[in-house]
């Protein structure tokens, strides 16, 4: 058995140092075939997301169609990794995606605030699973976390993990509400030891959402967990990654922190809605040599 660490003490993070390191990844110059391969990989790692109060069956269906037909614009492109929706839309998405191989991820556990009872959170999760969700994106109880009730947070994640059955569990830390990198690190450790398959930065509802330094802190937590236990945990930065260039910076970071073993969509995802289009535009620019206009790429 792994010994569970004392979450009241976690490895320290120096803010200036981690931000300096994160900015170093952006100095890598990604060119030619490396760029094309990187863009395709990034596309394949996207959890194409719509999480709005005004989501309708129609909107979700359009999104699913787009997810399956990226290669219409540019032959040979992979699909995105998953569609990410609210539990009520899981059934619609599942049906629309059919046997495309694209997974359906559902947020759950009183997303985005998580301010509800454990019972309701478990039922929320089970409902999404019953609708066919392949992956569950839960939120942690940030209030309890800030109160220092780390065991509560831990137990809740473990309970949701149990409710997930075979579905993979992504644990959203909502780093924008945690305040410091030290707390991001601590929350990452709690989530991983409690059974998370993924750790994820943000709901997309709070600013700041994903940043490179926050993601770096989480990747390093994953690395330490792997060193200790031999178990791989996947990573999902979400929110605020809308440009292809930034996505490439993230991939450089992933490659240089966790290495080849994580460079696929089983172990890394981008939670994004508009990133796909920017990647398509960049790929088209690489192919044609012309800078592109948004008018030529459908907005779904």
């Amino acid at each position: 058995m792994n010994t569970i660490p004392d979450f009241t003490i976690s490895p320290r993070i120096d803010q200036v140092g981690v931000e300096e390191r994160a900015s170093r990844f952006t100095k890598r110059s990604i060119k030619n075939e490396t760029k094309i391969n990187g863009l395709k990989l990034a596309l394949n790692m996207i959890d194409l997301t719509t999480l709005e109060g005004k989501d309708t069956d129609g909107k979700v269906k359009q999104l699913c169609y787009k997810a399956m037909h990226l290669h219409d614009v540019y032959a040979g492109l992979p699909t995105v990794a998953a569609i990410c929706v609210y539990p009520s839309m899981v059934g619609v998405a599942k049906k629309a995606l059919g046997d495309s191989g694209i997974k359906v991820a559902s947020v759950a556990t009183a997303f985005p605030s998580g301010q509800s009872t454990r019972d309701i959170k478990i039922r929320d999760t089970k409902f999404a699973i019953s609708q066919g969700a392949d992956e569950i994106d839960m939120v942690i109880s940030r209030g309890k976390f800030h109160q220092g009730e780390y065991n509560f947070v831990f137990d809740e994640i473990a309970a949701i993990k149990e409710a997930c059955g075979n579905a993979r569990l992504k644990v959203i830390l909502e780093t924008g509400e945690l305040g410091t990198y030290d707390k991001v690190r601590k929350a990452s450790d709690i989530a991983m030891y409690a059974g998370a398959d993924f750790i994820k930065t943000s709901t997309g509802k709070i600013s700041p959402a994903a940043t490179m330094p926050v993601t770096l802190v989480m990747l390093e937590a994953i690395r330490d967990f792997y060193y200790k236990t031999g178990k791989k945990i996947a990573m999902k930065p979400a929110g605020g990654i809308s440009k292809a260039k930034l996505a490439l910076h993230y991939l450089v970071m992933l490659n240089e922190v966790l290495g080849e073993g994580w460079m696929n969509n089983e172990w890394f995802r981008f939670g994004a809605s508009s990133l796909a289009n920017d990647i398509l535009m960049q790929l088209m620019k690489q192919r044609t040599g012309l800078y592109q206009s948004g008018d030529y790429f459908s907005n779904d």
Partner: peptide
Amino acid sequence: MAVKKNTLKLKFDSSRNLA
């Protein structure tokens, strides 16, 4: 658990050499 501590090594594959 069978995993020995501190022996795991990450793989930084040269196939991903930057252009």
